[in-house]
Design a protein around this nucleic acid. Structure first.
Lengths: 108, 108
DNA sequence: CTGAATCCCCAGCGATACTG
DNA sequence: CAGTATCGCTGGGGATTCAG
């Protein structure tokens, strides 16, 4: 990492903005779950261990506003809602992969 | 990312443990600052914009307990304390670099 | 099935003043 | 210089219930 970049990070606080988007307790887990493809609300709740309805709704809404996921509603009975990662969301995969590699090596 | 890995992440909540270590508001900024080498408490406070004494102390202590940084005290007058990234800490650089690349491309 | 609405709690964070 | 010690807040997060 160049010195120029580190100045940007610390000076303009890019990190803070990044954390606003994916720093939530469940954001990264949700993104992970969506990396394998579109999921329904229901499926996400099962995949992301211990998350409750309220937080899942909240994080998904937040992620939608930040252009990380796309929300598609189908007027069926019962209702069906699908969540899909956007390009912006999918491009987080390298970051998450690196973090995960680090976790595997050093956590515990 | 393999399906096997994603199960580990979501099932055993590795992400949560990672976020416990580097999910704090200032942790990543501090690590960034330390990537260029050992820094004194004083220097860190100048480099990490807008952080206050209490939080800097707290994060550094937390990072020390998690084996991210090493704290060295010199019995000089006035006192000198140096903080240095450990191997474990330095190996976070790829993750931070990826996150930063993403931020540069998509934030704003 | 997919949320919206409430209520509530506490941990994370900030500001400031003080000390060896 | 490098922290401690207090005080206070606010908002992130949890549990639960209701609704279309």
């Amino acid at each position: 990492m160049s010195k120029k970049n580190s100045e940007k990070i610390l000076g303009k606080c890019v990190i803070q903005e990044i954390l606003d988007i994916i720093g939530g307790k469940w954001s990264m887990s949700i993104i992970f779950a969506l990396l394998h493809g579109t999921k329904r609300f229901n499926e996400l709740q099962k995949l992301v261990t211990n998350i409750n309805t309220r937080m899942l709704v909240k994080e998904l809404k937040n992620m939608e506003e930040n252009g990380i996921v796309i929300r598609e509603v189908f007027a069926t009975v019962p209702p069906t809602v699908q969540y899909t990662l956007t390009e912006k969301g999918r491009k987080l995969e390298p970051s998450l992969t690196e973090l995960f590699k680090w976790g595997e090596e050093f956590v515990n």
